[in-house]
């Protein structure tokens, strides 16, 4: 076939350009189609969004203040049980605070904890991982052995020790949990960087003269994000769980903060007399963590190229 030679543009250009690269669905649609295949993930996402809304509009949704004490209604059972009233839908605790309101406000703390912990852990972990992956040599070895040491401790124990050193408070608990979770990000990022580095696009950025910082943050990092996002979703739930555990042990949020773990700890002694004061905070933690984990699985299906089918 003779294509018009010596024209201004190179031949074949029009034909090549006309077909191809058209009508392909966008990235988000593709992502959604993978994600929505996993029913559990969608359910998780819906619950997670519901929790976010509850946390955001806690002041409007909660019928009472989370710390207001109703002295006339101590340990009142939920509405459907004998002795319950519609004023306190899920009953009250030992000093007459409305359980539902406390749970709704507790959602705020959970998300606060989750977001702060993930931001600290992922931010520092990704940075350290990038450094390790790019530096190689002794810097790499040093960083990775340090992370190995951190990972060798049972995570909750390590967090406990750190809170014991820093002093019990919600902020310190979050810092401790972030430090415990951060090695996972370091390892993940380093592995992803090592996988990307030998690829030709990195080499061509080098040939073009990209500086090391540019290579790290502009060239390589965006291509390592998929597994990190999945890890972030999963460690969100770990953070909530660990914070609740620390709260339960009295080393996290301090009473009267309506944090779910702390609520559990406060009502430990009433397990036999008033089941609801323990059950509802426990359920809230369970459902929240489960929803996030389901969602994380869906994210992995959709973002992890190794699980993708062509």
């Amino acid at each position: 076939m003779t294509v018009s030679d010596n024209s201004q543009a190179v031949p074949n250009s029009t034909a090549e350009a006309q077909s191809g690269a058209m009508a392909r669905p966008g990235r988000f649609r593709e992502f959604w189609s993978y994600f929505s295949e996993n029913t559990g993930a969608v359910v998780g996402l819906v619950i997670f969004l519901a929790f976010i809304l509850i946390a955001a509009f806690a002041d409007v949704l909660a019928p009472h203040s989370p710390t207001e004490q109703f002295r006339q209604a101590l340990l009142q059972p939920p509405v459907w049980q004998e002795g319950g009233t519609s004023e306190f839908l899920l009953g009250t605790d030992a000093i007459g605070r409305d359980l539902l309101s406390r749970l709704i406000h507790g959602a705020r703390y959970s998300f606060f904890i989750g977001i702060i912990v993930v931001v600290i852990a992922a931010g520092s972990g990704v940075f350290i991982g990038l450094v390790a992956g790019f530096a190689r040599g002794w810097v790499d070895t040093l960083i990775m052995r340090l992370m190995d040491i951190l990972l060798a401790f049972p995570s909750l124990l390590l967090a406990l020790v750190m809170v014991a050193i820093l002093g019990p408070s919600l902020i310190n608990a979050m810092i401790a949990i972030a430090i415990v979770l951060q090695p996972h990000y370091v390892r993940l990022t380093r592995a992803a960087v090592l996988q990307e580095l030998p690829k030709d696009y990195v080499t061509s950025a080098r040939v073009v003269g990209a500086s090391r910082l540019r290579l790290m943050f502009v060239t390589v990092l965006p291509n390592c994000l998929a597994p990190i996002i999945v890890q972030a979703a999963l460690s969100f739930s770990t953070a909530i769980l660990d914070a609740a555990a620390l709260g339960f042990l009295g080393l996290g949020a301090q009473p009267p903060t309506p944090e779910w773990g702390t609520m559990l700890a406060d009502s430990r002694e009433f397990v036999l007399r008033a089941w609801w004061v323990v059950t509802f905070p426990g359920l809230a933690i369970l459902i929240n963590v489960l929803a996030i984990n389901l969602m994380g699985d869906g994210l992995r299906d959709a973002l992890d190229p190794k699980l993708k089918r062509s």
């Binding site: 076939m1 074949n12 034909a15 090549e16 077909s19 191809g20 058209m22 009508a23 392909r24």
Partner: peptide
């Protein structure tokens, strides 16, 4: 000229 038709063209 052109490319092999894909899923969408």
């Amino acid at each position: 000229p052109g490319v092999v038709p894909g899923q969408f063209d």
